[in-house]
Design a protein around this nucleic acid. Structure first.
Length: 556
RNA sequence: GUCCCCAUCGUCUAGCGGUCUAGGACUCCGCCCUUUCAAGGCGGCAACACGGGUUCGAGUCCCGUUGGGGAUGCCA
């Protein structure tokens, strides 16, 4: 099912923060199409919004892509990735302004574009008016528009934007995923191609760059479908080629809304609104905070949001690649899961079940647009987590150790003390971990090893069932077991297990009668890794101390 | 409001007119294994939104209704 024509695709993020999952999925499909067709994948930075773009965000996005294993043939360089073999760069739109200006000049000369002098406020008023009249707002050049006068005002330095004269005709977008989509001329207006600050708008820049860079396939989210007729009109006006368009279904939150990088901002906003915290206790200065609350289009930076969330003791939703990386997800799993949001292999495994788990390499080999779905897809964290856990479980221990070490170094370097037996911790927790964060997590399978003896919380049910009951009771068995523990040397999982099994056999009781009381005594709960591993991880002294501590529960 | 897109289990999806008493995965529920948990094995619950057509035959094609999503920016 390989498309025979090599596709030149591009991913063109705007650097306003880390790569979000929607963008990651788009990048992934662009990459996969290029790979599957033997084409080229190009990365371009759309930094025409001066106010919101940052170098830090660019670096973040490059790293996010790299972490996912999405490598680009052309674009900004990151290590050995990127470059400009065809000489189509630069890859930052802010460095390509001559090209945009030239295109705008061409359109101006052909009277296909013109300066417009309304202020944003005036336009807002016009929109409100149209809204109230229950009509669609549509900006069109007036019938009696005076070209010479307008150009003169522009020459004189009056502030203005440049608008494109939309031809008065319907446009049909031929989308490979959605089929033919018609847009009536009445809903297409004269849109802005150059902003007051002299930068081109997205619409103009995209079209100019895609042509100059020889892009053959434009893959993007369905939220761009309505922009496509504008782009096609520009392409025709400028004599450009029309690329193949493929609009990908939107990735949604569990509640059905579009998953976007603004979700964090929205969540924080809602939280502040609901709880009404004292502004003076927040890490953001009063003025900025007030403006933020008032203006929904203004967003806080990622770092500001993180600080705010910490101060408010709230959890921000995971929406970026970095969120999932820091959460301890494996990149190949994220790629696999993302690919399934809108694409499916349509192949069966040897056991007759649908192929669902595959590597990035498989995707790069078998991806094709004809298997991309049309319906929006919800992002189901539970399934992602299940995939991640399954993959962690199948990792060879050395690889798990390597991945975990890398994760720990980056996100929680102070979490592990020098006394801790790390190999044993990982042996005990790998089969029980859903993420790389789990082995050291406060609520993870190894949590008991990170608590001070005094902080062990004894689960009431577990104490009732395994310690208080029976004749003799679990509590009573703890004393001889403590003696047994004290006598053991070395104190290792296998020898501990063997000694306890032996003790049980001698006393003619089942393993459960000894193992469970011990487990509850040292962890506070009835569930933990195998007893030998649990005890060995704690060490002889801590085990004895915790048994004594537990016994005080009986005597109290 | 207007325009655009979409519609199979709770979720992701397979299905491209008959092989569908609709398959897989996640979740959930049983059972087995077992010193607990996890993993694993086995089994179960669960869907073609609705109404009209077309056709010998419709989950699959057409129209409408309803529902959901997106857009409506001098953001991208």
């Amino acid at each position: 099912m390989t498309d025979p024509t090599p596709a030149v695709t591009r991913f063109a993020p705007s650097p306003t923060g880390h790569l979000h999952v929607g963008g990651a999925r788009t990048a992934l499909f662009c990459w996969a199409l290029a790979r599957a067709t033997g084409g080229t994948f190009l990365l371009r930075i759309e930094d025409t919004d001066q106010a919101r773009s940052s170098d830090e965000a660019v670096r973040g996005i490059l790293e996010d892509l790299h972490w996912l294993g999405i490598d680009w043939d052309e674009g900004p360089t990151l290590g050995a990735v990127g470059g400009d073999p065809r000489s189509v760069g630069p890859f930052y739109q802010s460095e390509r302004r001559d090209l945009y200006d030239a295109a705008i000049q061409d359109l101006l000369a052909l009277d296909l574009a013109y300066p417009a002098f309304e202020t944003p406020e005036e336009l807002d008023a016009m929109r409100v008016e149209a809204q109230q009249a229950k009509q669609n707002f549509r900006y069109l050049r007036a019938e009696d528009w005076d070209r010479d006068a307008a150009l003169e005002r522009w020459q004189a330095g009056e502030e203005c934007v440049i608008r494109f004269r939309m031809p008065d005709e319907a446009v049909t977008v031929e989308d490979v995923i959605l089929g033919a989509v018609d847009f009536a001329s009445e809903q297409l207006d004269d849109f802005v191609i150059r902003k007051r600050d002299g930068f081109p708008t997205y619409h103009l820049a995209v079209v100019v760059d895609d042509e100059a860079m020889g892009i053959t396939h434009v893959l993007r989210g369905q939220e761009h479908l309505n922009n496509t007729p504008k782009h096609m009109a520009l392409q025709r006006a400028l004599g450009y080629r029309i690329p193949v368009f493929a609009h990908l279904p939107v990735i949604q939150n569990a509640d059905g809304s579009k998953m976007s990088k603004r979700d964090k901002d929205k969540a924080a906003r809602a939280f502040v609104k609901d709880t009404g915290p004292d502004p003076t206790t927040l890490p953001i200065d009063g003025d900025r905070l007030a403006r933020w609350i008032k203006d929904k289009k203004g967003q806080l930076d990622t770092s500001e949001l993180d600080e705010l969330a910490a101060a408010l003791d709230m959890t921000l939703p995971e929406v970026t690649v970095e969120d999932f990386r820091s959460g301890g997800y494996l990149p190949d799993v994220v790629v696999n899961f993302l690919a399934l949001l809108g694409w499916s292999p349509g192949t069966k495994n040897a056991d007759g079940k649908d192929l669902e788990r595959f590597s990035p390499g498989y995707l790069g080999e078998h991806f094709a647009l004809d298997r991309v779905g049309r319906g929006n897809a919800r992002f189901d964290r539970t399934k992602l987590l299940a995939f991640n856990q399954e993959t962690i479980g199948t990792l060879p221990p050395e690889e798990f150790t390597a991945r975990w070490t890398e994760w720990l170094g980056r996100y929680a370097p102070a979490r592990v003390s020098t006394e801790l037996d790390v190999p044993l911790l990982l042996r005990a927790t790998q089969p029980r971990s859903r993420t790389l964060a789990d082995p050291t997590a406060a609520d993870g399978p190894g949590a008991f090893a990170f608590k001070a003896d005094a902080d062990i919380a004894y689960d009431e049910k577990a104490v009732g069932k395994w310690l208080a009951k029976g004749e003799p009771s679990g509590f009573d068995r703890l004393e001889p077991l403590a003696d047994l523990v004290r006598s053991l040397s070395p104190f290792e999982p296998e020898s501990i297990e063997a000694a306890i099994a032996d003790w049980c056999a001698k006393n003619e009781i089942g393993m459960g009668k000894a193992a469970q009381p011990l487990r509850v005594a040292v962890t506070g709960s009835a569930a933990s890794p195998p007893l030998g591993e649990t005890l060995a991880l704690l060490g002889q002294d801590a085990v004895l101390a915790r048994i004594q501590q537990c016994l005080r529960l009986r005597d109290a």
